[in-house]
Simulated scan of single mutants.
Amino acid sequence: MFISELQITNYRNYVRAGISLDRGLNLFVGDNAQGKSNLLEAIYLLSTLRSSRASSDADLVRRDIIGSEFPVARLECQVDRSAGNLHLEVAIVGRTTDASHRAGKRVRVNGVPRRASDAVGQLCAVLFSTLDIEIVAGPPLLRRRYLDMMISQVDRGYLRAMQRYAKVLQQRNSLLKRVQAREASAGELNFWDQELAHAGGIIMKARADALGSLVPEAAHQMQRLSDGQESLHLTYRPSLGGLDDSSLPIDETEWIARMLKALTVLRGREIGAGATIIGPHRDDVTIEIDGMPADAYASRAQQRIAALSLRLAEASYLRNVLGDDPVVLLDDVLSELDARRRKGVLEFFDNFQQTIVTTAEPDRVREVMTRASGRFIVSAGALTRFEGE
């Protein structure tokens, strides 16, 4: 798939910008703080309906209109897909004093209003960022997010299970606090244990399956980018309170049963803690380079290549599951690589329908400039196509 048209209105530092994008490689050049990352964030939001950076939708609305009567940012794109062409619109409504204007997102797919969850993955994309190194070096939350954003684009059931799990977890934690304070009986947890285990089992099964597909491709990319000098291995660590063994469950039913058993065995500890201490919200993925934990022993350069390998594996995973190419977004990451690795990354994406690259240092990525079919200048939230070198 590829994006042919993109419109951005009142989003971050963009007042109004519209561009036609080419198939193949598109390059956006601009100084820092001009809107390059905002542009790719907007495209990724059209794919996942979540910002890759902001903690609140209100942060996405252009500052100058936040105090207006109806503060709203709009994103719109035309997508050519093997599954049929797509017109996608997302309106992001900021907070307002008018109760009739509810903050949040409004989504239309081919002109028809849809729930945000139903629009996730209609446009499929993978985003490479300079912050990706934190997937390897940072806390478990970022590795869970990596899996969640990837799987949600191709598995509606996973996204629904995630939403259900979050609601049940909140209710169960509230009840655990009441049981701890002797305001409720422990027996009331039975219903919520069943609900949490069902949603949690679906999530864990999907994560284990996705990681099983990622492992060989990520290892291959690490070998390729390191000239065969370094190995990369990923291991899923489901949070089951130490009750998980070396063999992961085979099917969804077994995952659900394993989690329900853990909730039953650990109930006393959870009442004492007043919180749910096991489940997908506590999962992790162990990342090893040459057999050693990458967060503790790898150099920053090794961690960066490992993170890049994970994103390349993600692109392959999305392509294989979807049966179509995701749109590839590279946010100023090529300038961090040496010429050989830049060449390796670009060659990998030669067979993808569309790759969008940003840079503040065009002289360092001269080969990208030469190969790009679409070239654009980003300046103060304005997008201008240019020809020539």
Rank of each mutant, 00 (worst) to 15 (best):
V333S: 12
A116N: 00
F376I: 04
V136G: 01
V109R: 02
G388H: 03
V107Q: 07
V93L: 15
A54R: 04
L147P: 03
V357C: 05
A208K: 11
Q354K: 02
D290C: 08
F2K: 06
G121C: 07
R23D: 05
L176R: 12
H87M: 06
M150Y: 02
L334D: 11
A206D: 06
T96Y: 00
L159P: 11
I287F: 05
G344R: 09
S239N: 07
P71W: 09
R258G: 04
V112G: 04
E367K: 02
S55Y: 13
E288G: 04
N85L: 00
L337I: 09
A137M: 06
A83V: 10
V378L: 14
E389R: 12
D331M: 08
S185K: 07
G121D: 13
R269N: 07
L260F: 07
H198Y: 10
S231A: 10
M369V: 13
G200V: 11
G104M: 05
R224L: 15
V112E: 06
L310F: 03
H281F: 03
A186I: 04
E195V: 05
D227H: 12
W255S: 14
E76G: 14
H220T: 01
I65N: 04
D59I: 02
L260H: 13
P216G: 02
G35Q: 07
A184H: 06
P140M: 12
G268T: 15
G157K: 09
Y146D: 06
A184W: 05
S82R: 02
G138V: 14
V126Y: 09
S213F: 12
V136T: 08
F191V: 15
Y317M: 00
D118V: 05
D98A: 13
L243G: 00
D324L: 01
G24I: 15
R108Y: 03
D31H: 12
A166T: 03
E183V: 06
R340H: 12
D325V: 01
L176N: 02
E288T: 09
I289D: 01
Q170A: 05
I19Q: 09
L39A: 08
